[in-house]
Amino acid sequence: MTQPADVEAQLDKVAFNADGLVPAVVQQVDTLEVLMLAWMDREALRRTLTGGRAVYWSRSRGVYWRKGDTSGHIQEVRGVRIDCDGDTVLLLVDQTGAACHTGTHTCFDTDERDLLRADR
């Protein structure tokens, strides 16, 4: 991933919110399917950039979690981008297994979660 000398310069490009967090949208690298949304602070993003696997900050538990350490459903990071304002991170990953904590492939895959569908 990113070389250690470049990491701080890359992190300085990110506009973390007042809580020190940035939302991370996660996409499957080959299909571009949106898998999930999570939160990262500077350290989680640093660990992601240097370690090659996605690391997030759990707002509810107050701990870091590297995706897949307990479930085996890992996210190998293939790319990291920020949006035009620098206040959202996009992770392009190669997902193994389910991305959602409910056990589904993506957190956005069931019809009952549809608020509006383009095909209706």
Rank of each mutant, 00 (worst) to 15 (best):
D19W: 03
L37M: 12
E112D: 13
G52T: 08
D94T: 14
C107V: 14
L115N: 02
V25I: 11
F16H: 04
D41H: 07
V93M: 13
E8G: 02
Y64E: 08
A18H: 09
W39R: 11
V34M: 07
T2E: 15
V89A: 06
A99H: 00
D69G: 02
D119P: 00
G86N: 10
T31F: 06
T106V: 06
L91I: 02
A5P: 11
D69M: 05
C84M: 06
I74A: 14
G52A: 03
G79M: 04
R78Y: 05
P4K: 05
M36K: 01
W57H: 09
A5M: 05
L11E: 01
Y56A: 15
T48F: 02
R53G: 02
L45F: 08
E112N: 04
T104E: 15
E33F: 01
F108I: 14
V26C: 09
Q95M: 12
L49S: 03
G20I: 04
R78E: 15
T102L: 13
L37A: 07
T96S: 09
E33P: 00
V77F: 02
D85Q: 09
T102D: 05
V34D: 01
L32T: 15
T48W: 01
M40R: 02
D19P: 03
F108W: 07
W57S: 03
A98S: 07
V7C: 11
L115K: 10
L116D: 09
G103S: 09
